[in-house]
Amino acid sequence: MDKSAKPNVIEVRDLRTQFDDVVVHNDLDLDVHSGEIMGVVGGSGTGKSVLMRAIIGLKRPSNGTVRVFGDEFYEADEKTRLSIERRWGVLFQGGALFSSLTVAQNVMAPIREHLHVEGELAQDMAALKISMVGLPPDAGAKYPSELSGGMKKRAGLARALALDPELVFLDEPTAGLDPIGAAKFDELIINLKESLGLTVFMVTHDLDTLHAACDRVAVLAEKHVIECGPLEEVRRADHPWINEYFSGPRGRAALVAKAS
């Protein structure tokens, strides 16, 4: 895993997380290289969202280290943390939009906060992101409670991309999107990766996204990463969950779709 020449943007070692005495992860290792799209899969409740939260500094691990951009987030001082936070964007599973701000104001929030850009330029930047994630222009003036589930996802993604981050965390970005929208989303992520050198940590259940977008896949089960590598390799691994996941009807359909 460590033989790759590219530096690791995320480096998780011996991670252990728990809620009281319920252990979610134990001895979990994971590397995400610079400029790759890492797909994280696993059954419901295996701790994908918690892993993401541990990496972005919201869930302190009870053991092990988490390094992002080479710095140990939980040990870093305020200034380092801020500079790390500026370099990543996060899309939460539920969107997590600010409910008292409109979509456009949501997208402008990090632009104002971190870049201190105001006025028309900030609005133009927000409009660009809103359009890029496939929302119509009139969605900008809507409040989150007026959006559909899929639109919330897109708005959350627009906010995550607002600062052109080097690293984005996406928790099930295509869940709740129509298939056309989901395919467009894959395309968008790949484009951004190519033009901006984006690194992506993506939790997903979407097999099409795995095939289309992900450079490597990490499979979470039994409290740690059981397989990690290119999709082709992972698919061949001998583990009941992996077999069922990739050779179930949906897994095969995605494969056919990819081949055609």
Partner: peptide, 9 residues
């Protein structure tokens, strides 16, 4: 994606 968008109602 250059079209401006509404910011608030």
């Amino acid at each position: 994606h250059l079209a401006p968008c509404h910011v608030s109602p």
